[in-house]
């Protein structure tokens, strides 16, 4: 059921994307931006229903899988963009964000929401919920920063190279994109930090040790340090191009590690195959 609703949401996202792309190509059609916004808002609402129904059906176990995490991330990214659009009025940015949403969401439509095995009772506590929500929120913000950085770099190339093409007349100023990127990274880092703390506390209880060199822990620490460094570098004057490149690299690492750690079975205990653990427990 939740998959069907998610498909409906995807259809709405597709319309929103098309409208934003039309607006980008023909800025005179101001109505396209409005249509894009409202379809995105509708998609966000339907997506919320899909997540709620999914929770009711599976009791939250879907969020222990990569699919569940990404579904949640895309939903939050769409929500954040809707808020940003209300604050800053950047309709041309929609043409960059909505396609990213579709690219992430589309493959998920063909995967079932069921997780391999039911997570043990020890994982059913508020600190895990906090860990999941803040981690996904942080990554969603990093994802939006990725989109904004991409816009910055593409436009910067035009401005510096004296080729004043389509982007030049449509995108916000370099300074505005740079500052938006910085804000997204900073806010994302705050949530990511909370996620790491909550995760460490959970590990101490469930894995009996706060730090056990689990690959997920190593990667998360690296990402934490990278974005932490970016927040610090900002204070020493880093900005613009180099900052945007770092933002791109950071998100590629985040997304790449998420996919890699999940697709190699048994490499991490983090949100792993609880079915196998249960079976092993039965065997003993």
């Amino acid at each position: 059921m939740s998959v069907t609703i998610l498909r409906a949401a995807t259809a709405l996202y597709t319309v929103a994307t098309a409208a934003y792309v039309v607006f980008f190509a023909r800025p005179r059609i101001a109505r396209a931006a409005t249509i894009g916004f409202w379809f995105l808002a509708a998609a966000f609402a339907v997506h919320a229903i899909a997540i709620g129904v999914g929770c009711a059906e599976l009791g939250g176990q879907e969020f222990f899988s990569l699919r569940g995490g990404l579904v949640l991330m895309v939903w939050l990214a769409a929500g954040i963009y809707l808020v940003l659009q209300r604050w800053y009025r950047l309709p041309t940015v929609g043409a960059f964000i909505t396609p990213l949403i579709l690219v992430v969401l589309f493959p998920l439509l063909f995967v079932g929401p069921e997780h391999a095995g039911v997570p043990p009772e020890t994982l059913r506590n508020p600190s895990v919920t906090l860990h999941i929500v803040t981690a996904v929120l942080g990554v969603a913000l990093f994802g939006l920063a990725f989109g904004v950085s991409l816009m910055y770099l593409l436009q910067e190339r035009e401005v510096k190279g004296k080729r004043f093409g389509a982007l030049f007349s449509r995108l916000p100023s370099l300074d505005a994109l740079d500052r938006l990127n910085q804000r997204l990274v900073r806010t994302g880092f705050v949530f990511y930090t909370v996620a790491i703390v909550a995760g460490t506390l959970t590990a101490k209880v469930v894995w009996k040790s706060a730090w056990s060199w689990d690959p997920q822990q190593v990667v998360s620490l690296a990402v934490f340090l990278l974005y932490g460094a970016m927040v610090q570098l900002r204070h020493t004057g880093w900005h613009g191009r180099r900052y945007a490149v770092l933002t791109l690299v950071g998100f590629v690492i985040v997304l790449g590690s998420m996919v890699t750690l999940k697709s190699v079975p048994g490499v991490t205990r983090h949100a792993g195959d609880y079915g196998a653990a249960a079976r092993a427990g039965d065997a003993q």
């Binding site: 401005v159 007349s169 300074d175």
Partner: peptide
């Protein structure tokens, strides 16, 4: 009505593109 039609207008547009406000 789009675009800059004088050099000083172009200069202004460029500066705005880079610095925004």
């Amino acid at each position: 009505g789009k675009g800059a039609t004088s050099m000083s207008q172009v200069a202004v547009e460029l500066v705005e593109k880079i610095f925004g406000d």
